[in-house]
Nucleic acid binder design. Structure first.
Lengths: 375, 375
DNA sequence: ATGAAAGCGCTAACAC
DNA sequence: GTGTTAGCGCTTTCAT
């Protein structure tokens, strides 16, 4: 790090220029063009009541002067900032960073800018409210990523404030996204003929998307039991330890007595990776000997060619942003919360259950099916 | 997706309220407190010339009214927006998202907000300049992530505009970050006694940090040769195909004739993962049979307990942001570019070369060393 | 098609 | 310690 004595790249002349804040104002442009500021304003924003030649001249001059309207002044005059706040609990988790990317794209496409607020812990701290409040006067609307990012009270506060907002990923009264995702994954495997499954999921109390412990899942599992399908639930620490822990859990599972599952659902791609590594070590072929379904399935899942229940959070966030903008421009209210509907992305890590699957894995490949180059 | 007919969670009453934009202004607060707006302004911003009881009263009233100063109005009055723009080429790559996180933290800690600009392709398109220009009037300073994010002309333009900015990750005249990182990694392995190395790196022309093809690296490699150390360079597609490709490359390498390297440097954690998977399949123990060094080494590398050359980009970005703020508040100029100094993070994937290491791997473990639970 | 003028909500001198 | 006042740079009627 050498910020302190970092190389100053600008020549003294430019430095001078900056020191005097020589940013041209709309008046400068108006004067240079010999018109009023009102005309310049219309011309630059592409509003109608300007003669074509006049407009051209103004645009040229503005360009030459390097003029751009001050966001503050425009904002004060119009009452709108042309920016929306995006609050996310994480930037490292692919689902969230993808969502932020999606939102950014949607917003920038409409000439809105995105103010990022990173709220790692969903606490009801006064600090948090302060941060939200700061945002409130800075942006026209709020896109909240993650159902648990804001507490109920904060959501209420938002609603009271009358600020337009959308919460992406909320599992509300009607839909439980997590359970739905888990169900989707399990259904896929059952359809492939698997009757002995393991489910690697988060510890009870784990936050957000990695924790499919909702009653929807319990419905699903009890339904399974009546069909004679075994589903062993294995709780894994999520987050940084997910890979290590799922490796360990898989080893234990495989070394243990009793029948081995022919398919595993993992609540995150990291867990799936752990299973993949350990399975490679055991000499198992994926998906011939063992089917694996991931969740979240963005970058890592894609690279690993993992069949996964994906969130397409980028698209969802983009849509959310679009709704927000539509509401802003159309004056209508969209203050609402959207539920997450997961999609199943079938890739290379699941296959129909081998007919004569032994308890220990290590079975001949189904005829006609190429072994994958998985470990 | 159901934004269109999404559940509106606010009751009609609140909806009414919003419709009338009932945001209190500073005058409302002043009136309610029986003071002037100037006093309110001072009180709220914590400026000195306000009596303690007055301040308390004002703060209370402001709180009760849900007042927060309009950023636009304040910005127009002060000439500063209290926000800085962060431009990043990516949010998915851990190094960048970590950097954004770091910057956000630093900025929010100082009550600045962060406006995000995502510029995936470093093109000289007019669109890009437009976007940059938009930002210019919206933020007080710019933090540019990535050496290649902006083209030379755009940097020049920035400099001319006099906007405060810092570029993080630039390998300038003096330091070549990539080569330095590669050198660091290689040196580590050589010190562990390895004399036969492979280097998985990006294709020529690959962007930014994953492409250590600078002349610094060539210096390093030629130096190695004179020491009798073999370094086989293997070019791998980076990005989405990195894992798959490095698996393939490793298989080929291992199946091929001749001596096998005892250590591998990977230009990204994804490549390292590919190697890890394939090594597990070959029955190799890491690091006993094979040492692996990753690069970028944030989340994935950490989870895999990979020895890696890390960028600590979060810290770097935070420092950059701090410098920017210091400059903004102190009026001094910091327009400069910072170079990246990589650090070696020694974790579990490298070990001293086994004494009687066979060409094929599969060697007894060094006495006294626990085999890792790697695949 | 263009211009004059009245703010938008806040801050910062300056006066008291 | 507190109030008065003059803008900040733009948008937006309303005239012309």
């Amino acid at each position: 790090m050498d910020e302190g004595q970092g190389v100053a790249l600008i020549p003294p002349a430019a430095r001078q220029a900056r020191a005097h804040h020589p940013r041209p104002s709309i008046e400068d442009v108006a004067a240079a063009a010999g018109v009023s500021t009102a005309t310049v304003s219309r011309a630059i924003r592409g509003l109608p009541r300007v003669a074509q030649p006049t407009r051209m001249r103004i645009l040229e001059i503005a360009q030459a002067l390097g003029y751009a309207a001050s966001a503050s002044a425009a904002g004060l005059a119009t009452g709108r900032t042309r920016s929306v706040g995006v609050v996310t609990p994480s930037l490292r988790q692919p689902a969230y960073s993808a969502a932020v990317e999606g939102a950014e794209r949607a917003l920038r496409g409409r000439d809105y800018s995105l103010v990022l607020l990173h709220l790692p812990h969903r606490s009801a701290s006064p600090q948090l409210s302060t941060d939200l409040n700061m945002l409130r006067r800075r942006v026209d609307a709020l896109l909240v990523l993650g159902a648990d990012t804001l507490g109920k009270d904060q959501i209420k506060q938002l609603q009271r404030s009358g600020m337009q907002h959308i919460v992406i990923g909320l599992h509300g009264e009607h839909v439980d996204g997590e359970a739905e995702a888990a169900t989707t994954a399990i259904r896929h495997l059952v359809q492939l003929g698997h009757t002995d499954l393991a489910f690697f999921l988060g510890e009870p109390g784990a936050p957000s998307w990695a924790n499919p412990q909702a009653r929807g899942l319990e419905h699903c599992t009890s339904a399974l039991k009546t069909e004679g399908i075994k589903l062993k639930e294995i709780r894994i620490e999520i987050g940084a330890g997910a890979i290590r822990n799922s490796r360990r859990a898989f080893s234990r599972l495989w070394a243990g007595p009793g029948s081995k599952p022919t398919a595993i659902v993992c609540a995150s791609d990291e867990m799936a990776l752990g299973v993949l590594l350990e399975a490679a070590r055991e000499g198992l072929s994926i998906p011939e000997d063992l089917s694996i379904v991931g969740m979240d399935g963005q970058d890592l899942g894609e690279s690993l060619e993992l069949t996964a229940v994906i969130q397409n959070s980028a698209l969802r966030a983009a849509r959310g942003a679009q709704s927000l903008l539509a509401a802003l421009e159309g004056e209508r209210s969209v203050t609402y919360s959207a539920a997450w509907s997961p999609e199943l992305m079938i890739r290379q890590s699941t296959a129909r259950r081998a007919r004569n699957h032994s308890a220990a894995g290590m079975v001949e490949t189904e005829p006609g099916r190429q072994p994958r180059d998985y470990g």
